[in-house]
Simulated scan of single mutants.
Amino acid sequence: MTISIGDRLPDTTIKKASPKGAEDIATGDFFAGRRIVLIGVPGAFTPTCSNDHVPGFIENYDALRTRGIDAVAVLSVNDHHVMAAWARFLGAEDRLVFLADGNGSFTRALGLDIDLSKAGLGTRCRRFSMLVDNGIVRELNIEEKPGQAVTSGAARILEQVEFQES
């Protein structure tokens, strides 16, 4: 079952990629007491993810922070080495938090997994964005069309965060 607005995020352990290596984090602890925008992507270095989806959040990072967002995190079913390299490639190490869900356990617990085996990618994360407040999903935007980042893009979540602030 797919997570919904009003649901608490599942508590599992994933890895946070950093220049110093991987750090195990409990999702319950990571999201506790903070407002976080969580972005889910099918894969690091993939065209839509690298050229459109994540760059929109990098460009709008300061605007999100001024609206009370404590962190912007990117989740993918990739290992922490790939996520750290992708953060460096995008020049986003000092802005976004890159979360590696290597075996997809968090993604499956969210109900946001997708089988992309036909494309040779195996099980991945659906493209989404969500606003999480103290571990509770307040907004959820799941992209329905492959290769696009409109519904789940930075412009959409900016509108929602602004609305939340009003």
Rank of each mutant, 00 (worst) to 15 (best):
I3F: 01
I25V: 15
M130Y: 02
I58H: 08
D29G: 13
D94R: 13
F128M: 02
S152P: 03
A92L: 09
T66R: 13
D70T: 10
N60D: 14
K118W: 11
V77I: 15
C125V: 06
V150P: 05
I36P: 10
N103S: 13
L75I: 10
H53C: 04
M83A: 07
K20P: 01
R127H: 05
S4Y: 09
V54S: 09
G33S: 05
H53A: 07
D79W: 01
D29P: 04
F30D: 04
D94K: 15
L112C: 01
F98Q: 05
S117Y: 01
A92I: 04
F31P: 12
A149Y: 10
D29V: 14
A154E: 09
A63E: 14
D79V: 07
R67E: 15
G40V: 00
P42T: 03
M130T: 00
A109N: 04
S76A: 15
T66A: 11
R124K: 06
S76M: 03
W86F: 12
R34C: 06
K145E: 14
L110V: 04
A17R: 08
G147M: 01
E93W: 08
G135H: 10
A87D: 11
N60Q: 13
L99V: 05
G122V: 06
A92P: 07
A44W: 10
W86Y: 13
L131F: 12
R8H: 13
F30C: 05
D70F: 10
